[in-house]
Design a binder for these strands. Structure first.
Lengths: 184, 184
DNA sequence: GAGTTAAGTCAACGGTTGTTTACAAGAGGT
DNA sequence: ACCTCTTGTAAACAACCGTTGACTTAACTC
């Protein structure tokens, strides 16, 4: 019955759920513990505190696909499609939403986002775009991806009457330009 | 010496500053009062509470320029330039940043953003793009603008080594496409 | 200059937060 | 069955939050 590993995992999963809904500040450790059906004190025992639990709960892997094989004109589209699939798929990956929500008021979460962009997005771009204007391209891609996620999954900007394919095509074309089109 | 109108204004301005830095939850009324050099109780006297003070502190007017006179191919660029000017100009308009920051965890602030987009951005788009695919165009424009503001002014994504003109040109071209290019 | 009203202060309340401490109970080895 | 270490619980702590009500002080009227 008593299984430290299992309750630890239950805490992490409950934390992911609630952090993603309310962000860091509005989430209470008591609520997490209640949803995990354990005692709040265990959060301190297992993680050391709320902050460390958060750090462990959100370790985002964007799982960016290998785009190097694609014909170069379709990379943007593939990338856009990937993110939609990722955010709306069965696995329902809320981690990036959690981070975006929280980073708005929590400096540490902001650092995490910058790390993800630097460690996952930037290398991907260098693979498909060479090293030409890398920083600028990464920055532009980031603004569009973050903006899409923010509008759609954080403030729930209404997307009724908008076909998903239309969105994917339009955003994909933008990403394509940011990745490969000549700048300035 | 004692001037209700003046201290009221001091409170609003202090509130704008701190809300924009920390967001709603991490901002305390005591801190606002301290920065305004008045007693915390006055916030309740003058505004009714923290929430109403916030509502009064953030009433954003995007001051979108009249773009109908421009030649149609330059609207996107003008729009992008407008936002950069707006956010980095002398007036240093932090209100939208405050809202974006706060809307991440505060549903009411999210409503405000949706209102602003609906009441200010959407009509502007209908003026320059007719009524063709209005909802989709507004949505796309919103994702790019919000993403830019979020990356640049909320999580302070590093933009060293990136010329402002390059950004304006690239973002402007995106907005242009979202506004006028055929969709899907 | 006394009296009235507005403006500002002070201290406390009730509630919630993250965290800690002391204790109880289950699991496993001997 | 007894002891021991791990796992879990209960209660309280100390700090902070927004808010309130009673009080004091300044400004203005007559």
């Amino acid at each position: 019955m008593r299984n430290a590993e299992a309750t630890r995992e239950r805490l992490v999963q409950a934390a992911r759920r609630i952090f993603s809904e309310r962000g860091y500040e509005r989430t209470t450790v008591r609520e997490i513990a209640a949803q995990a059906e354990v005692n709040p004190a265990l959060i301190n025992r297992y993680f050391g505190g709320k902050e460390q639990l958060f750090a462990e709960a959100v370790s985002v892997d964007l799982a960016l696909p290998d785009l190097s094989g694609l014909e170069s004109g379709r990379i943007g589209l593939a990338l856009a499609a990937h993110f939609f699939r990722r955010w709306e798929g069965a696995e329902h990956d809320d981690l990036l939403r959690t981070l975006i929500r929280t980073a708005a008021t929590n400096p540490e979460a902001a650092v995490r986002i910058r790390e993800i962009l630097g460690r996952q997005v930037a290398p991907m771009i260098s693979r498909v775009a060479g090293s030409e204007r890398l920083a600028e391209r990464a920055y532009l891609v980031a603004t569009q991806i973050l903006g899409l996620a923010y509008a759609r999954y954080v403030i729930n900007l209404s997307d009724d009457d908008i076909a998903r394919d239309t969105l994917v095509a339009a955003i994909g074309e933008t990403l394509q330009r940011y990745l490969t089109a000549p700048l300035q």
